[in-house]
Amino acid sequence: MRRGKIERLAALLEIPDDIVLDLPRITMLGNKQLLVENHKGIIEYTSPLVRIKLNNGELIITGQDLTLGNLQAEQILVEGTVTGVKYEI
């Protein structure tokens, strides 16, 4: 398999997976901020629910008073009170 080979090569050269495999990087600061890098767009946005499209599936964020700050082509910053993060493939 092609993917497996690339993965092994990446491991050998100690290159981070997210760069090689085009995976999203998700960083959380407590339950206040959630930064999603390398996303593919927003599917749904409401105050208690945010759905973000990813390379291989989608990320469902639930919470209260969620706002989208610092929206760029590469990253989304979800602010508010995050109560749940679910990764759906």
Binding site: G41, I42, Y45, T46, S47, L66, T67, L68, G69, N70, L71, Q72, A73
Partner: peptide, 12 residues
């Protein structure tokens, strides 16, 4: 986002 137009403080 695709056009590179910066939006922030999005609130519903």
């Amino acid at each position: 986002l695709a056009r590179g137009l910066l939006l922030w403080g999005i609130k519903k």
